[in-house]
Design a protein around this nucleic acid. Structure first.
Length: 506
RNA sequence: GGCGCUAUCGUCUAGGGGUUAGGACGUGAGAUUCUCAAUCUUAAAACACGGGUUCGAUUCCCGUUAGCGCUACCA
């Protein structure tokens, strides 16, 4: 905890650009801001940074808000909620940026620059080619301010540049410690484009200061921008906030996590059936560890209690899907069965295994399938594939499947299948799991097959695969399913055996 | 190119001037099960390299290397 900021005054913000889906890096930044605010009884603000008009879209803002809410990271002030220091969308704050820029101009802390963008680009390229730093020459720095103002009044378009003082810029970062940049590498940055549109590094300072942000917690891709921003705070005579720059999240190849690494947006994880508490828990462990470093599972409340920015690691972290899955399995097991059933339903509807709005009997039956399969999946999206052998049965495909050839070509397979089929056909009514067991025992005695050589062929006949869930629970589910109204009728055991026997020629 | 940030098992990390360098995921083995998955038990697995400082360095300092970021009238 920072001694400079009494608990009640802590104000932090998450400030995404609505230019795409919320991805894991941003979500982790949002989470750490949220945790820090909650921990200190502070205020958590959502601000939309839409100054890049070409890339910003309203639909992304809605998506962002939906993703954040799904994660449970509710904010206290924001564009949808309002608050005392709004508006919370940068496109609604243009007058403010304009006013402060004029003030800086009048006070001589900034100056007008009439250099052409093409010329600057040319200069830049030349500097790079000659292995020099591509810094602004400072040409317009020498212009007479009064003269510049006059030129602007006459319609000449000019950008506004901040005057960087001739001394090193220092600031403190909670995760990186003291950081120092030479003023020579900053060079007078443009704060307002010649079009009148202010740039990010400028508006972020105006907004953070106006919104009384005490701790700027964001990705470390902004670390190199921070000296510009600190210079701006100082030019405006404002208190510089505390910074905490969070490390980058990388993919398995140690490159910055991106779409080609697979699922990276929060929406992706939700769609694949990752529970929000699992994702929150995983994200918290990416770059942070509790005191002692031996505990892995935390509810959001527990995280709030344990969290501290001082324990955030500065080094980049590789995203590990397997560990996320492990946490997801943990939270699936912790969840109520009703919740998992509710979350699983849409996947089965999409697979056309069930129709929307199940009747009570079907729902009850469905819940038993989920109870049987959910404990062993990484995510909910895997469920329909695991349950497919209940809903669909294709004897010919099972016989043709390469992974079954070893089982079906085994010495005892034909006799086991024959003996099993004969007995199942002799049964009347639904096959109970006790009757099933008795039949298997009789087949065992008759054929002398036991263990895998007995069960693998039987399992293949019933499910089309030689591995799967326990028969004890599976047999009743299949039998009862055959009486339900479903998009495609579930075949009972006898029907399966019949179809298999008809198609099977040893 | 310049500047900055980073460096403990494959991965996420704890730790810290003297430790059997701890935990977790994953991996291997065993248990359980007809089987697969899950689960439980268990094992293997790390201080990037080179110089200092020190009685002693993985830990502190400096370099090297590597990775990443910034270097825009993008955010």
């Amino acid at each position: 905890m920072s001694p400079d900021f009494p608990a009640s005054t802590v104000r932090v913000r998450f400030a995404p650009s609505p230019t795409g889906h919320l991805h894991v890096g941003n979500a982790r930044t949002a989470l750490f801001n949220w945790l820090f605010a909650r921990k200190h009884g502070g205020t958590y603000i959502l601000r939309i940074e839409d100054t890049d008009v070409e890339r910003s879209e309203a639909r992304y803002e809605d998506q962002l808000i939906a993703d954040l809410k799904w994660l449970g990271l509710e904010w206290d002030e924001g564009p949808d909620k309002g608050g005392p220091l709004g508006p919370y969308r940068q496109s609604d704050r243009m007058q403010l940026y304009h006013d402060y820029a004029e003030r800086l101009l009048i006070e001589g802390k900034a100056y007008l620059c009439f250099c052409k963008a093409e010329d600057l680009e040319e200069e830049r390229k030349r500097a790079l080619a000659e292995h020099r730093s591509p810094l602004y020459s400072g040409k317009c720095r020498a212009l007479d301010p009064a003269e510049s103002l006059k030129r602007r009044a006459h319609g000449e378009a000019g950008a506004i540049r901040l005057l960087i003082p001739e001394r090193p810029i220092r600031f403190h970062d909670i995760v990186h410690g003291d950081v120092e940049f030479s003023n020579e590498v900053v060079s007078d940055p443009i704060i307002v484009r010649s079009s009148g549109m202010p740039v990010y590094n400028y508006v972020v300072v105006i907004d953070d200061a106006e919104m009384k942000i005490t701790h700027v917690i964001r990705g470390d891709d902004h670390l190199s921008n921070t000296p510009k921003q600190v210079a701006l705070y100082e030019a405006l005579g404002w208190k510089v906030p505390e910074f905490a720059h969070l490390s980058t999240i990388l993919g398995g190849d140690r490159e910055r996590l991106s779409k080609r690494h697979g699922a990276t947006s929060i929406a992706n994880f939700r769609e694949m059936g990752i529970l929000p508490e699992a994702l929150i828990n995983y994200l918290a462990l990416l770059g942070w560890a509790p005191t002692g470093g031996t505990r892995e599972t935390f509810t959001p409340e527990e995280l709030t209690k344990e969290f501290s920015l001082e324990r955030v690691t500065p080094s980049p972290a590789v995203f590990d899907m397997q560990k996320l899955y492990w946490l997801n399995r943990h939270y699936i097991a912790q969840s109520t069965p009703e919740r998992i059933v509710g979350l699983a339903l849409p996947y089965f509807e999409a697979a056309r295994f069930i129709a929307p709005r199940l009747d009570a009997a079907s729902l009850n039956w469905f819940a038993r399938i989920i109870a049987l399969l959910a404990p062993s999946v990484d995510n909910l999206e895997e469920l329909p594939a695991r349950a497919a052998m209940i809903f669909r049965y294709d004897a010919k495909a099972a016989i043709a499947a390469p992974e079954n050839t070893e089982v079906l070509k085994s010495e005892k397979a034909p006799t086991v299948i024959g003996a099993f089929a004969r007995r199942v056909n002799a049964e009347n009514g639904a096959l109970s799991s006790d009757r099933f067991k008795a039949i298997v025992n009789e087949v065992k005695t008759e054929t002398g097959a036991k263990g895998k050589e007995l069960f693998h062929p039987i399992r293949t006949v019933i499910t089309g695969a030689h591995s799967g869930p326990e028969f004890d629970k599976l047999i009743p589910i299949i039998e009862e399913g055959s009486h339900l109204q479903l998009p495609a009728r579930v075949l009972n055991v006898r029907e399966r055996v019949g179809q298999f026997a008809a198609a099977f020629t040893p």
